[in-house]
């Protein structure tokens, strides 16, 4: 700075993560673990946003934040073991540290959900981003701003259900109606058996006016669930979903996660079905 006198503010490098300790690791299923890590100071986020998690020596990967923003102490991420970074994460224990940078993405459009009834539909690990919003809307401060709340959750087998402890809590919650289904039952399972879209049409009886549905899960499940919701009379703008893409920078610069002119990391990952319909099918 040409002779300027003043305090030099240290510029922030957006790619440098903050190292934080892992507080707790919960084995959810055979290949899914939930990691509770210390929340970095000045990390403020909305439900549906994600963070890049860095494992030194292994790399970085994006994960949606599954804890509610009202949790002040920690962040939670539910992670399926699938690649190099997740494999390394699964070997970590409480006390080990990981890098966190974010939050990134748009998050759920909470303000447009206000005063509506909410139908959450999750498949497999797709419950992770929903959980952040579910716990947010169930919180005493926020509950008053929403009407009826239903959650339909499905997984392949009873062993693949994530957040079993949370599901128990939600089942007893009087402000939430919970339906859990599995594609394939076993001797231990006395609940509903059936694919999410089919169960949806069978058990959820709502008049779609005043409802919003938030769908998250594997692509094939999303596809058929949206079809079922449309058959039930939901409007395209009232169906909200999240997309997954390979993401690196998190801020719409590195150029890989776009669908048409939209960057999933910046303009998404949450999109309404109306928005999705206007995008090319390249995801």
């Amino acid at each position: 700075m040409n002779g300027e006198v003043g305090i030099r503010i240290k510029e922030k490098n957006i790619y440098v993560p903050t190292m934080v300790p892992i507080l707790e690791v919960i084995q959810e299923t055979r290949d899914i673990k939930t990691f509770r890590v210390q929340r970095p100071s000045s990390f403020f986020y909305h439900p549906g946003q994600f963070a890049e998690i860095f494992v030194p020596g292994k790399g970085e990967a994006p994960f949606s934040i599954t804890s509610s923003p009202q949790e002040e102490r920690f962040l939670e991420f539910s992670i399926k073991r699938i690649g190099v970074v997740t494999d390394a994460l699964h070997r970590l224990n409480p006390g080990d540290s990981v890098g966190v940078r974010g939050p990134y993405g748009n998050g759920f459009p909470v303000s447009s959900l206000l005063h509506s009834s909410l139908l959450f539909i999750g498949g497999g690990i797709g419950l992770a981003p929903l959980r952040s919003l579910i716990n947010y809307v169930l919180s005493p401060q926020e509950r008053i701003n929403f009407r009826e709340i239903i959650l339909l959750y499905g997984a392949r087998t009873p062993q693949d259900l994530v957040f079993q402890w949370e599901l128990k809590r939600w089942a007893e919650h009087r402000d939430l109606t919970l339906w859990v289904t599995v594609d394939q039952g076993d001797s231990s399972w006395s609940g509903i058996v059936g694919l999410v879209p089919e169960v949806l049409k069978k058990v959820v009886e709502v008049e779609p006016i005043g409802w919003k549905s938030i769908v998250c899960g594997p692509p094939i499940m999303i596809k058929f669930t949206i079809k079922a919701l449309l058959e039930m009379g939901f409007q395209v703008k009232d169906i909200i979903t999240t997309l997954e893409m390979r993401m690196k920078c998190g801020v719409g610069k590195c150029g890989r996660c776009n669908i048409g002119p939209y960057y999933v990391c910046k303009d998404g990952p949450v999109f309404s079905y109306q928005e999705l319909q206007e995008m090319p099918e390249e995801y």
Binding site: G59, A61, E244, K248, C254, G255
Partner: peptide, 29 residues
Amino acid sequence: FDLSVDGKLRGLTLHTWDSCMFPKFTLHA
């Protein structure tokens, strides 16, 4: 561009050129 790591117990996080022509550019885990 890509962000990648180089080195196990000590190393660098690299910011490198990348290309949309490579299959790996958008490959999911």
